[in-house]
Design a protein around this nucleic acid. Sequence first.
DNA 1: AAATCGGGGTA
DNA 2: TACCCAGATTT
Length: 346
Amino acid sequence: MQFSKTLINWYSINKRSLPWRQTKEPYCIWLSEIILQQTQVKQGLPYYETFLRAFPTVFQLANANESKVLKLWQGLGYYSRARNLHATAMYIVNELNGEFPKTYKELIKLKGIGDYTASAIASICFNEPTAVVDGNVYRVLSRYFGIDTPINSTKGIKEFKSLAQELIDKKKPAEFNQAIMEFGAIQCRPQNPDCEICPLNISCLALKQKRISQLPVKIKAVKAKKKYFNFLVFISEDGKTILKQRKTRGIWQNLYQFPLIETKSEMDFDNFKNHIKNHKLLENVSFELSLYNEKSLVHKLSHQHLYTKFWIVHVKNLKTEGTAINTIKDYAVPILIGNFIESFIF
DNA sequence: AAATCGGGGTA
DNA sequence: TACCCAGATTT
């Protein structure tokens, strides 16, 4: 197959020098693959360095507290990746004597490892010919073969996986898998790819049919819902505030935040002051309320747009234990909270 | 099968 | 704005 040879040749010339390409250590490859899920290389790179420095092997990662892992993950998003990373590290150390499974079939049983990551580790570390299908692969295959099956449909997922599996170079699975992904990231990029210099332009069906900009096809995402978040930033006279760990399912699980009051609409000062007077943290408490941001900060997530206000609540004493303000930087918080903490003068 | 889970980058 | 990113998991 000329397709595979061309890709591998292109890769040998054009691949970026990246730290996880200097090793075949399963721990390193696993770590890099988890970090890079739905994450661009530029964004994930510093996290990879940080994690490897903090946890050089799976044993250090397994022995860490989840809070420490989440703190280092702060800002990268999709925090279930960090929780699953830590849980799987503990499983590998405690149940597998620190040794990684060596096959796709065993790898995919681990928390946080799905079809893509199991294929990546199995091929890169253990030379198993299992094809990876990530966003890059969907794009390259849909264009080159002119396939308009939606890539996020059940049919599309099976179809592209099957096609990639047919195309993989079984003698060089690690090379092929990384080549097609890198090719998608660098050459066959989402917008305005330079098809003039593409080594596959002669036989690319989408180019021939002028459908490059229309492929791959993807089923439309649902529109994000608006939510209205009001954070209570307590400040006591003895230098404490209140941070609470999110234990509910949903976004930011196990991260910390200021006490949150979600409302049906945007709150103004008088409205909100009246709204919180019966709040359990303010019962029989004299407090002085001020609003940090008159205009809501809009924090956009994939499925929610958070219209956020930070309300400063000065009190003499807290009704709970509280957290010393000079230690709040040690807690893993959503970047929305982190940005506030950085800019606010306590 | 569809929804959910982040945050940053691009055009 | 809309879409994308070395996807996985839950509903």
